[in-house]
């Protein structure tokens, strides 16, 4: 884990919760923190190089774009895990794929342009793997937020 100082944490806090919609966003952050733009840019670059910052951009709402997304799980015999995980990873609409500590041991999320397209992908995958996949689309969202408290 990267060692972050107070300024790094303050930058991350702003970048997660209040990233300026501005021509020069890092200049705006620098103003808030009383430093200069090049200092902010170089710190952000370091945190990106270290892998702490995955990316900078937007998280889009799949439903607002007319997409269907769902959580799926399946039970895979130990010796087939690698093969099955690799096959699932190949599907472009799979954004998360994890080995988990449960009878259903592989869990993945699938996003597709429509429900029909998602069902077809799942059906093809079931046929290819010969394993039943459970499909758990969300019915109601209470929270989606992924920002981490930087302790500022």
């Amino acid at each position: 884990m990267t060692v972050l100082d107070k300024t790094d944490r303050a930058i991350l806090d702003i970048m997660q919760n209040d990233f300026p919609v501005a021509i020069q966003p890092y200049l705006e952050i620098a103003k808030v923190l009383g430093t200069d733009e090049s200092e902010v840019l170089s710190r952000v670059r370091n945190m990106k190089d270290s892998g702490l910052i995955r990316r900078i951009g937007g998280i889009l709402d799949s439903r607002k774009l007319g997409f269907y997304s769902t959580l799926c799980a399946l039970t895979v015999p130990e010796e087939q895990i690698e093969k099955v995980a690799a096959a699932i990873n190949l599907i472009p609409g799979v954004t998360h794929n994890y080995l988990r500590d449960h009878d259903y041991n592989i869990w993945f999320t699938l996003t597709a342009p429509s429900r029909e397209a998602a069902m077809q992908t799942l059906q093809e995958l079931e046929t290819f793997l010969g394993i039943k996949i459970i499909n758990m689309p969300n019915q109601k969202v209470y929270k989606i937020k992924v920002s981490f408290d930087m302790g500022v």
């Binding site: 997660q16 889009l60 920002s147």
Partner: peptide
């Protein structure tokens, strides 16, 4: 797009393991 909610979040996306979680 932010107002419409098409962009649901704006800014840095972290790798949580490396953020200490």
């Amino acid at each position: 797009l932010l107002k419409k909610g098409t962009i649901r979040r704006w800014g840095a996306v972290l790798r949580h393991q490396q953020a200490g979680f």
